[in-house]
Deep mutational scan, measured.
Amino acid sequence: MEVVDPQQLGMFTEGELMSVGMDTFIHRIDSTEVIYQPRRKRAKLIGKYLMGDLLGEGSYGKVKEVLDSETLCRRAVKILKKKKLRRIPNGEANVKKEIQLLRRLRHKNVIQLVDVLYNEEKQKMYMVMEYCVCGMQEMLDSVPEKRFPVCQAHGYFCQLIDGLEYLHSQGIVHKDIKPGNLLLTTGGTLKISDLGVAEALHPFAADDTCRTSQGSPAFQPPEIANGLDTFSGFKVDIWSAGVTLYNITTGLYPFEGDNIYKLFENIGKGSYAIPGDCGPPLSDLLKGMLEYEPAKRFSIRQIRQHSWFRKKHPPAEAPVPIPPSPDTKDRWRSMTVVPYLEDLHGADEDEDLFDIEDDIIYTQDFTVPGQVPEEEASHNGQRRGLPKAVCMNGTEAAQLSTKSRAEGRAPNPARKACSASSKIRRLSACKQQ
């Protein structure tokens, strides 16, 4: 084909351009004929944790799935940006308080904090938690009735009371019990989460009196709706648990309003109706937990002794299953770290194939690490110290990083047969305790 000078094309009309061969290198194709290559998922490591896909996002930050490269346990990490926390009232204080509380709590029905990582340079905090497959609110939203069968609701409620009793025994008032803060594992274990607005009572406090509340409006008791200066913290949790039980068994809320002012007005009056299909035992329990006067409201001991709580409820309806993943529609909620794991395991070791967030990740503290002497050669063979940054567990980050890069360049065919977990650990520049 004859090559045409581009400067001469402006002298031709459209018809003349076609005659000189423009149609031979300008093609129009339908979008259905285009085959897009999927974007390669680059592996990203935060300390010893391999990052997966997004699980959810809230006002405080994002939650992603991660894999512990040492234990191969599935975890969830809450990623918090200090810049964003400053824009939220009491944001930083709530996060630090939640970390302090979770560090000393150990119960099967309370979410466990596994690790805390802090990135000084990017001003990011990573709260590594045990993995929960789904939230209770997500399960309720997945069915038209917006409720659980009585047998399933009873099982979840009993676990909620177990976890709540443990928190109260530790002198902690949750203040925000609701389905949105109750998570579930694949085995059906309920976990109380989000202790950001919780309050730890003084060890020598005479009672459970509280003065502040930041919980969700629909789950607040009349004493808070009416603006009382002080109130019983434990009875606030009992009320919120009662509203939660009402919601998961009926699909409704005892109090509603077009806006928060109308909602608080209705809560302050204390008038509500219980659907007739709840039955006398459940209705009596709800009335005891939603008692207007805090002094007359049920205690956890009274809830445990109630006939509806103690009764064994046979399954009359099919239980609400864990819904498919909202993004991938995966009904099994498979591990989202698998594509990243395959990338590390299947590809040659190259620095361009993975990302390490930083050479140094500070753990379990908000301060910069200490310094240790770096050896410097002298005339008599002895070495003197220069400062060298280290990880919180004493690992020399720069030395590990250099060693990792040197190993990656060394030709050794046997290394390709290593397991995925050992490869992740070798790529991680800074081991965590």
Rank of each mutant, 00 (worst) to 15 (best):
residue 368 V to Y: 13
residue 220 Q to C: 08
residue 7 Q to M: 01
residue 350 D to V: 08
residue 234 F to L: 04
residue 273 A to H: 05
residue 193 S to N: 15
residue 238 I to T: 10
residue 403 K to V: 03
residue 82 K to I: 10
residue 365 D to C: 13
residue 425 R to M: 13
residue 243 V to H: 00
residue 64 K to T: 06
residue 308 W to C: 00
residue 255 F to A: 10
residue 116 V to R: 05
residue 173 V to P: 01
residue 375 E to R: 12
residue 415 R to M: 11
residue 140 L to S: 00
residue 142 S to M: 05
residue 137 Q to W: 09
residue 56 G to C: 02
residue 391 C to I: 06
residue 60 Y to N: 03
residue 310 R to F: 10
residue 300 I to S: 02
residue 66 V to D: 01
residue 53 D to C: 07
residue 174 H to A: 01
residue 311 K to A: 15
residue 219 F to V: 04
residue 50 L to T: 09
residue 223 E to S: 02
residue 372 V to L: 11
residue 378 S to G: 05
residue 340 Y to I: 02
residue 336 T to L: 11
residue 50 L to P: 05
residue 39 R to L: 12
residue 59 S to E: 11
residue 76 A to W: 00
residue 188 G to L: 03
residue 159 Q to W: 05
residue 159 Q to Y: 06
residue 191 K to G: 03
residue 59 S to N: 12
residue 17 L to D: 15
residue 372 V to A: 12
residue 359 D to W: 06
residue 382 Q to V: 07
residue 100 Q to D: 14
residue 163 G to R: 01
residue 411 P to F: 05
residue 159 Q to A: 07
residue 351 E to Y: 09
residue 254 P to W: 05
residue 416 K to S: 13
residue 70 E to A: 11
residue 198 A to H: 13
residue 415 R to I: 05
residue 310 R to H: 12
residue 308 W to A: 01
residue 275 P to R: 07
residue 201 L to W: 02
residue 142 S to C: 08
residue 407 E to S: 14
residue 264 F to R: 04
residue 14 E to I: 11
residue 407 E to C: 08
residue 342 E to D: 04
residue 189 T to P: 07
residue 327 D to T: 14
residue 71 T to N: 05
residue 195 L to F: 12
residue 364 Q to H: 03
residue 380 N to G: 14
residue 199 E to F: 11
residue 270 G to C: 11
residue 200 A to L: 03
residue 97 K to C: 05
residue 252 L to V: 10
residue 56 G to F: 01
residue 342 E to Y: 11
residue 401 S to V: 11
residue 272 Y to W: 06
residue 216 S to I: 01
residue 60 Y to M: 15
residue 166 Y to A: 12
residue 255 F to M: 04
residue 123 Q to E: 07
residue 76 A to Q: 02
residue 393 N to T: 12
residue 304 R to I: 02
residue 251 G to R: 02
residue 327 D to G: 06
residue 331 R to A: 00
residue 40 R to M: 09
residue 20 V to G: 11
residue 278 C to G: 07
residue 29 I to L: 06
residue 381 G to W: 06
residue 151 C to K: 15
residue 151 C to R: 06
residue 383 R to L: 11
residue 104 R to Q: 08
residue 148 F to K: 00
residue 358 D to W: 12
residue 259 N to V: 02
residue 74 R to F: 05
residue 401 S to N: 11
residue 324 P to E: 13
residue 384 R to N: 13
residue 273 A to S: 03
residue 256 E to S: 10
residue 423 K to V: 09
residue 72 L to Y: 06
residue 88 I to F: 04
residue 127 M to D: 01
residue 64 K to Q: 14
residue 404 S to V: 13
residue 15 G to R: 11
residue 235 K to L: 09
residue 132 C to R: 00
residue 254 P to R: 01
residue 392 M to R: 05
residue 176 D to A: 00
residue 164 L to V: 04
residue 245 L to P: 00
residue 396 E to V: 13
residue 358 D to A: 09
residue 91 G to I: 15
residue 364 Q to Y: 13
residue 165 E to L: 02
residue 185 T to R: 06
residue 82 K to T: 14
residue 126 Y to C: 02
residue 143 V to F: 06
residue 426 R to A: 02
residue 62 K to G: 09
residue 176 D to K: 00
residue 204 F to D: 07
residue 382 Q to K: 07
residue 184 L to W: 01
residue 408 G to W: 12
residue 323 P to G: 07
residue 383 R to E: 14
residue 323 P to R: 06
residue 201 L to V: 04
residue 96 K to I: 06
residue 373 P to N: 14
residue 132 C to Q: 14
residue 78 K to I: 00
residue 299 S to E: 14
residue 45 L to R: 08
residue 397 A to S: 09
residue 264 F to W: 01
residue 205 A to E: 15
residue 323 P to Q: 02
residue 74 R to P: 09
residue 430 C to G: 13
residue 419 S to Y: 15
residue 38 P to S: 06
residue 140 L to Q: 13
residue 378 S to Y: 10
residue 112 Q to S: 07
residue 220 Q to L: 03
residue 310 R to P: 05
residue 142 S to P: 10
residue 259 N to W: 05
residue 178 K to R: 03
residue 240 S to D: 04
residue 190 L to F: 02
residue 410 A to Q: 08
residue 223 E to C: 06
residue 225 A to Y: 05
residue 322 I to F: 09
residue 9 L to W: 12
residue 146 K to R: 14
residue 103 R to G: 03
residue 386 L to I: 07
residue 142 S to Q: 15
residue 198 A to I: 00
residue 48 K to R: 11
residue 287 K to L: 04
residue 425 R to A: 14
residue 84 K to G: 12
residue 330 D to E: 04
residue 248 I to F: 02
residue 361 I to R: 13
residue 343 D to N: 06
residue 200 A to G: 02
residue 6 P to E: 09
residue 48 K to N: 05
residue 92 E to Q: 08
residue 220 Q to A: 10
residue 98 E to V: 01
residue 374 E to W: 13
residue 247 N to Q: 08
residue 110 V to L: 09
residue 158 C to I: 13
residue 393 N to F: 13
residue 20 V to R: 14
residue 294 P to Q: 11
residue 184 L to R: 02
residue 242 G to R: 00
residue 300 I to A: 13
residue 57 E to G: 07
residue 224 I to V: 04
residue 281 P to D: 12
residue 153 A to M: 00
residue 258 D to R: 09
residue 48 K to Q: 11
residue 341 L to S: 05
residue 102 L to F: 07
residue 317 E to G: 14
residue 387 P to E: 14
residue 375 E to W: 13
residue 326 P to L: 10
residue 338 V to T: 15
residue 332 W to M: 11
residue 247 N to W: 03
residue 264 F to P: 11
residue 287 K to S: 05
residue 231 F to I: 15
residue 208 D to P: 15
residue 54 L to P: 08
residue 422 S to E: 12
residue 110 V to H: 05
residue 123 Q to R: 01
residue 24 T to P: 15
residue 91 G to V: 02
residue 321 P to N: 06
residue 76 A to R: 00
residue 45 L to S: 10
residue 348 D to T: 14
residue 111 I to T: 03
residue 120 E to Y: 05
residue 300 I to M: 05
residue 133 V to S: 06
residue 54 L to G: 09
residue 362 Y to N: 12
residue 230 T to E: 15
residue 30 D to T: 15
residue 230 T to L: 04
residue 415 R to W: 12
residue 340 Y to N: 06
residue 286 L to I: 10
residue 54 L to H: 07
residue 175 K to I: 03
residue 403 K to S: 05
residue 258 D to W: 12
residue 346 G to K: 15
residue 79 I to E: 01
residue 101 L to R: 09
residue 422 S to G: 12
residue 367 T to S: 13
residue 65 E to F: 08
residue 221 P to L: 01
residue 276 G to S: 11
residue 189 T to R: 11
residue 403 K to N: 11
residue 341 L to H: 01
residue 163 G to T: 00
residue 292 Y to P: 11
residue 110 V to A: 01
residue 339 P to V: 03
residue 219 F to P: 01
residue 66 V to P: 01
residue 45 L to M: 09
residue 289 M to V: 05
residue 383 R to C: 09
residue 140 L to F: 00
